[in-house]
């Protein structure tokens, strides 16, 4: 029953444009499920990259909500959101405007369960539309707390 209700709300949001709040601020909702599986990055893989001494680290962008970023975020990540809103998408576009189109970029949100995220699909779609081909979306199944922090991956607390 619970999942039916949630699915109903999600379908309604996806089909009609979510009427409930911020996600309706001028941005088209793009489902997280629209991101091809080949373009998903598992948290363990990103954590290993960040812990390595590699000089070719990707640019990591948090494209979710400011308060959650201020509480904690991936080490060296930059804030560039929220992509579910027009204003947030503008921040993202501005941040990447001068980057070479082959730049390695990882985007993540983790605000809520993957299938409900209002930001990750929009951010991925926007970057692809801008011509970026080396973009990965960090697959955080439930939220940033359980999917990253509780696993002991590198994190910066505080904005």
């Amino acid at each position: 029953m619970k999942s039916l209700t949630n699915a109903t709300v999600l379908s309604f949001c996806l089909g009609m444009g979510c009427p409930f709040g911020a996600s309706g601020v001028g941005a088209e909702t793009v489902a997280a499920s629209s991101i091809p599986a080949a373009d998903l990055l598992q948290p363990a893989d990103l954590a290993a990259t960040l812990k390595s001494n590699s000089t070719t680290r990707p640019l990591v962008l948090q494209i979710g909500f400011r308060k959650l970023f201020d509480e904690a975020h991936i080490v060296d990540a930059e804030y560039a959101g929220p992509s579910g809103e027009s204003a947030g998408l503008a921040v993202l576009r501005k941040r990447v405007a001068k980057l070479p189109r082959d730049s390695a970029i990882v985007i993540y949100c983790g605000c809520c369960p993957w299938g409900h995220c209002p930001n990750i699909g929009a951010a991925f779609s926007a970057l692809r539309a801008l011509g970026f081909r080396n973009v990965k979306a960090l697959y955080i199944a439930d939220n940033f707390g359980t999917g990253w922090i509780e696993k002991g991956y590198p994190v910066t607390r505080g904005g």
């Binding site: 308060k67 959650l68 201020d70 509480e71 904690a72 983790g110 605000c111 809520c112 439930d142 939220n143 940033f144 707390g145 359980t146 990253w148 922090i149 607390r157 505080g158 904005g159």
Partner: peptide, 17 residues
């Protein structure tokens, strides 16, 4: 309205709900 400080005081609200 909550904020990062309130979330942190409850051990961190890193995702919703």
């Amino acid at each position: 309205m909550g904020d990062a400080k309130l979330g942190e005081s409850f051990g961190g609200v890193f995702g919703l709900p």
